[in-house]
């Protein structure tokens, strides 16, 4: 990573070129699980963005104090703290979302995007840059989730935000709202992101799967050759 990145490029990086879901292949579980409706997708995206920004800031602020050996447990504890805050806020103010997200809300703790960014970015950069990185990654995550939710809710149930959009004559493709549809839509979107990125003339890594391994918070332990392969 270059030392001198402009503030704007840190934010925009997360949108497409380093989009956490589509290009870094992090945080796939919530991407597939809760994108059956646009409402859930946006809620999940915002919750994760909140955690990303604050945990990035906190980790960046503490990066010189935390010994390298207990780095990962320390990061996870910080993240879990913010996730608990989000859980309590959502439970208090947006009950329907709390019901809909269920177990996936506490599971933000183990969302690899957050730990991945802590390891890849926040532990090496200043507080402001880390907050911006969290913001960019969070927006990228939210956008991908929303796109998935849009496709799956519109085509799978014929509705958007619970309001019927497609006329009754169009039979909704229920398969898209079910688990197999999640994998399928995600695969197609990922292929699209790769195409767009190539069109912009960006260098595309020959093996997209390697990116996933680099983003893995444990890549240091396995040196890119252990369990990840």
């Amino acid at each position: 990573m270059e030392k001198k990145q402009s503030k704007l490029s840190i934010v925009t990086n997360g949108l497409l070129h380093e989009n956490p879901n589509l290009r870094l292949v992090l945080g796939t579980c919530p991407t597939l699980a809760i994108t059956t409706s646009v409402f859930n997708s946006i809620g999940m995206g915002l919750a994760a963005t909140f955690v990303l920004i604050f945990s990035n800031m906190a980790i960046s602020a503490c990066r010189k104090i935390i010994p390298d050996k207990v780095r990962i447990p320390a990061f996870i504890t910080i993240i879990a703290g913010f996730v608990t805050v989000v859980m309590m806020l959502v439970q208090a103010f947006v009950q329907p979302l709390y019901q809909a997200l269920g177990v996936y809300l506490p599971l933000i703790v183990v969302n690899c995007i957050i730990l991945g960014r802590a390891e890849m970015f926040a532990s090496k950069n200043g507080v402001l840059d880390s907050a911006l990185d969290g913001l960019g990654m969070g927006i990228g995550f939210t956008l991908t989730l929303t796109a998935m939710g849009f496709i799956r809710e519109l085509l799978g149930a014929g509705t958007l935000f619970g309001i019927q959009i497609l006329p009754d004559a169009v039979e909704p493709m229920a398969i898209l709202a079910s688990p197999p549809g999640g994998f399928f839509v995600f695969g197609v979107l990922m292929a699209l992101a790769i195409m767009l990125d190539e069109k912009q003339g960006r260098k595309v890594d020959a093996d997209p799967e390697k990116i996933g391994c680099a983003g893995c918070p444990n890549s240091k332990n396995c040196h890119g050759e252990g369990g990840c392969e």
Partner: peptide
């Protein structure tokens, strides 16, 4: 597969079919 689908995208589509069998 088509070039854009190489690697993970096609793997996800395959996972979709395996998941279909579990339904």
């Amino acid at each position: 597969p088509p070039k854009a689908f190489e690697g993970l995208p096609i793997t996800l589509v395959a996972a979709s079919i395996v998941s279909l069998s579990f339904t």
